[in-house]
Design a protein around this nucleic acid. Sequence first.
DNA 1: CGCACAATGTAATCTGCTGCTACAAATTCT
DNA 2: AGAATTTGTAGCAGCAGATTACATTGTGCG
Lengths: 391, 391
Amino acid sequence: MSSPTVLLSNRQIGDVNRSRVLRALCDHGPLSRAELARLAGVPRATIGTIAQGLVDDGLLEQTDPVREAGRVGKPGRPLWFRVDAGLCAAVSFSADAVEAALVNARGDVLARVEVACTTASAATRTLVAAVLEGVRQVVVAAPAEVLGIGVAVPGVCDPATGSVVGSGPLPGAVGRHLSESLEEAFGLPVLVDNDARAQALGEKWFGDGRGVATFASVQTGAGLGVGLVLDGELYRGADGAVGELGHTVVQLDGETCHCGLTGCWETVATLRWLRREAAAAGLPGARSLDAAGLVALREGAAAHLLARYADHIAVGLATLVHLLGPSRLLLHGDVVGGGEVLRSLIADRLSARSLPHVRDDVEVVLSSLDQDAGLLGAAALVLSQRFALAA
Amino acid sequence: MSSPTVLLSNRQIGDVNRSRVLRALCDHGPLSRAELARLAGVPRATIGTIAQGLVDDGLLEQTDPVREAGRVGKPGRPLWFRVDAGLCAAVSFSADAVEAALVNARGDVLARVEVACTTASAATRTLVAAVLEGVRQVVVAAPAEVLGIGVAVPGVCDPATGSVVGSGPLPGAVGRHLSESLEEAFGLPVLVDNDARAQALGEKWFGDGRGVATFASVQTGAGLGVGLVLDGELYRGADGAVGELGHTVVQLDGETCHCGLTGCWETVATLRWLRREAAAAGLPGARSLDAAGLVALREGAAAHLLARYADHIAVGLATLVHLLGPSRLLLHGDVVGGGEVLRSLIADRLSARSLPHVRDDVEVVLSSLDQDAGLLGAAALVLSQRFALAA
DNA sequence: CGCACAATGTAATCTGCTGCTACAAATTCT
DNA sequence: AGAATTTGTAGCAGCAGATTACATTGTGCG
């Protein structure tokens, strides 16, 4: 409960500074020692020794000198992650498969497999077996040491213990079986976390969250979840049970949600709502409609429903903006299929539902990672644990 | 926009560790060197040198050895803030006065004055003059050097520049006049921030937020605001414009708020709403009713209204809990007058409006600082700036 | 071509701070 | 009174960034 009162030692200062350098590289791309030094406001020699350690450890490499036109002096040799550095095994789940991948510190997916598995109904044994098989296949492909295994689970997780507290879409994952089995089988650190949080971390390392101090990563579609990066750190709250933006009340006397509460955001901004409304409006293919399909329809009733969908999404985003003031909102999942049309509708409605002084300070962005967001997020769990230790 | 990439140097590590020691003292009260060492997991000698520096600077003093029954060995000499250490001038505003105080690092109010001023209608010149007069009176009473001046403003502030962006209750404060005038008149650092945030900081240093890593401090009454302490740090967001919990939507098609948006939490959980409903229910003294009065009435219609008030308050709190999972909610303002009766009603409704896995992890607490929360918060602005530098 | 100039990267030394060990001081238990 | 226990302090070692000086590699000009 209390803040732990840990002192900094000379030993740790090195680790912290190394991680700061790595973070700067993530945020800005390849940088020479001199550029890093300017960025950090320290003498070049200081960066030199730090960088040398990272190169010696096989983490970074010097690329060829880059000549820029009109620049005099010795050209810099930018530092960048080696292609075999920071290897992570990453696991995420789709409806009908367990996905596993080998990801490096650059965010390259070096290997990728899908193990068929109807995840929603799989028993724990089946699910664990599929995960073990997937990880095994990507780990044997690794060209160097694998740092750890990251697992992004759609559900409530306690990353401290590696246990899954509860999961609607993935009941078989509940408990510590996943993390225990993986650790036993591979002898590697296993990091289990909520998928929305992992996605946020993925955006921070590899996506549109790079270099952005404060942003929110919002998952849409079947459910609504959010991962928060505040002041440069992924926010996990007191225990892991946060980011339940989907179950905040947007309608005091609203309908009952599947969670048992009433008036949750999820009751008015998920695909379930969208399809019900589409059916009520007599739209074709209502039962399997999604944002992409709705945008494609374009005509009257569809346009009207799209506008309402955008408005309802914007309500929950406005809560985020008012409470936390992120400088960017990254959208994942269904709304990405709606493209720029839907994005701008949402941005407009968000603006209309926000106070004047916060209105212009937030960007609404569709995630460019999207399909890979889960896997990259799972990998980022490992990288963050390994490198980005907070001070 | 990007995280600033600052490296740690040997010089800073000392500052950080000194501030960690001070924070530990704030969180736990007077502690001997040995207790501090155990808390931090470092050798006693390390704490010894850090503490010696703080004692030499006149910040801490050694109290007399304390003998505890049944404890063998040399008794410890707890360290504690000197009564003249960490002096801050603090300013807050009530409806009819500017309040100023001299506060030390222990949270003692050493001097206190009120300068009459109808703050809501005062012109900038009048308001600034009243603030200067108040600060002057408490600063001359200071027994030692004053570290700075903290100002808690009910409105949107940008603490980085010291400017007030906008304020409904205090239009005269808008701009940089307050901070510029104070700085010029006294030659001291001036820190201006939103009152809800300042209150949260006050709770962290001196109140029920001590030792709690993650909590929210909620202001109730005329408006609804929130200050957040996340992972031990006051959260300020990208710019200062956060904590506008009062203008999150709790009713999709709700009534229009004074801010121009619709369905804001403020439309259903402020005194304005309470009094209107009380009048509609025919309660006596409806136009000046508050939580304390409502609890005193006790009978049927009043009890019913009280329950609805509690429920409506709980809706907004549930948003906080679902999104951020604080381990404690500190309530200020009107609801404090409702006492334990109202507190337990709110806690019950919050539980009913929360998901099962977050339900039991949050305490609802009435602030014990209450009346002094604003002033102590303003003082804490200065102390945090001066001592609690983040790593 | 040769030289001044500018920018990058590196080696040696200095400084600040924590970690460790040993020791003096103060108190209780036997 | 003496052993045991706990607290606070002094001295030395080790780590890591800061500083300074220097070698390296490029451009631009006469």
